[in-house]
Amino acid sequence: MQLLKLVESEIQIDVPLPWNVRNHDCTLLLARGHVVSSEAQMQALLERGVYVDLEEKRAVEALSAPKPAPPKSIYVRWADAIDTLETLVHDLPHAPDFPAKIDALAQELITLTDLDADIAIFMAVRQDQARHLRYGYSHSVYTALLAILMTQRMEWTAANIRLVTLAALTMNASIADLQSQMASQDYPVLDRQRAQLRAHPFDSAALLAQAGITDTLWLEAVRQHHEQANGKGYPTGTTQIKELAQMLRMADVFMARISPRVIRPPMSVQDAARQMFRDDKGGAMSSAIIKVLGIYPPGNLVKLASGELGVVMRRGAEARTPLVAAVTDTQGRSVTTTLHRNTAEPAFAITGPAADDKNLLARVPPERLYGYAQMGAQQT
C-alpha cells in the first residue's frame, strides 16, 4: 500500500470523508464516510499526520470526475455543420477568425464524407422539406459534399479538394438568407431578388476578402461559379472558366435541381443526372456525378420486382444494383421492420424510381437504416 499524506485542503468539515484515513503505518484511523465535525478535530488530525491509500484516492477521483460527453452521431455532425456555416456566414465580413473556422468546417465535411459516404448522400438526397428556411446553408453544405465525392473520384489533389470544399461552403455567402426565403416563398422570383442573384458571385467574393480570405483560386472560383463555357453564364459572361469553378457550378446546379421548393417539387435524381450529362456532353464532371451517386443513390425510393417499395441504403458494385431496405410489403402496405434487399438478385431487381405519394420516406429516418452508432468508412 502506497500512502499519500493529506493536507488541509483535502479534508472538509461536516463533509463525509471520501476515503479511509490512516496512520503512517497504515493503521485505519477514520473510516470512509466519517465526518470531521470541527476545526479543532481537523487540526489535531493534521498535527498527528494522516494518510490515504494512493490507489483508493485515485479511484475516488476517477468516479467523481466529470464523464466525457458521448461522441456525436454522424447525423448530428452533419446537422452541426449546417449550424456552423449559418453562424459563420451571418457574421460576415466581421466573423472572428473566419479563415481558420471555415477551414475547420471544410475539413469536417471531408472527414464525414470519408466516414460514410452513403449516409452523407442519403441525407443530401432526402433533404427535410420542412426546413426550407435553412436552404441557403444546407444547400452549400450538400454542394460541398457532392464536390468532394466528384473530385475524389477524379483523383484531384487533397489541396484542390479542400479548395473546392471551401468555395462550395462560401459561394453564396451574400445571398444565403435570400436563398432560404426563395425556397419557402410560393411565388416566382422577384426582380429585386433576381438582381441580387446575378450580383452574388462578386458580392460573396468581396465579403470573403473582407473577412481575411486571400487565396486567389478560392475567390476566383466563387466569382466564376455561375459562368458557362458557352458565354451564357453570369455575372460577366466569360468563356475562360477555371476548372475549380466548373466543378463548383456542376455540383451547385445538380444539388439545386434535386432540392425541393415550396413552389415546385424537386427533380428526380435520375432526370437531374440525365440533364447534367446532356448539358456537359458526357464530360468527365457529369460522368463523375453518375459514378459517385449510382443510378439509384442512397435516399432514393425505388420499385422492386418483388412488388415492394424500398429506400436505397448503400451503393452497390454496379450502378443499378444498390442495397435497398424494403419499406412496404408486396401490397404496398408500410412495414415496421427493415428488410434488406440485394437488388442484384432478379427477385428484388429495381424496376425504376418510385414517387413518394404516401410520404413513406418521412417515416424512415436514417437511424432506422444505419443504426445510431454507424461510424464506419464506406466503400466507394
Rank of each mutant, 00 (worst) to 15 (best):
A144E: 13
A183N: 04
R192Q: 04
V141R: 06
Y187E: 15
W218M: 06
T165A: 04
N172W: 04
S204T: 05
Y142C: 01
V189P: 00
S140F: 05
V189Y: 02
M150Y: 03
T165R: 13
F122K: 05
A221S: 13
A130G: 10
Q196Y: 04
A205G: 07
Y137C: 01
M123F: 03
A158H: 06
A211I: 04
R134S: 05
Y135H: 15
H226N: 09
Q210N: 08
Y142D: 10
W218E: 02
R131D: 11
A173L: 12
V125K: 05
H139Q: 12
L163G: 00
D128W: 02
I161Y: 03
M171Q: 15
S204C: 06
R134H: 11
A124E: 07
R162T: 10
L149A: 10
L149H: 11
R162P: 00
E220T: 11
I148C: 03
T151S: 09
T216G: 00
M171V: 09
H139A: 08
V189I: 15
Q127N: 06
G212D: 00
Q193R: 00
Q127W: 07
A206N: 10
Q193M: 08
A209H: 13
S180Q: 07
V125R: 08
T170K: 06
Q127I: 15
A205C: 06
R126V: 10
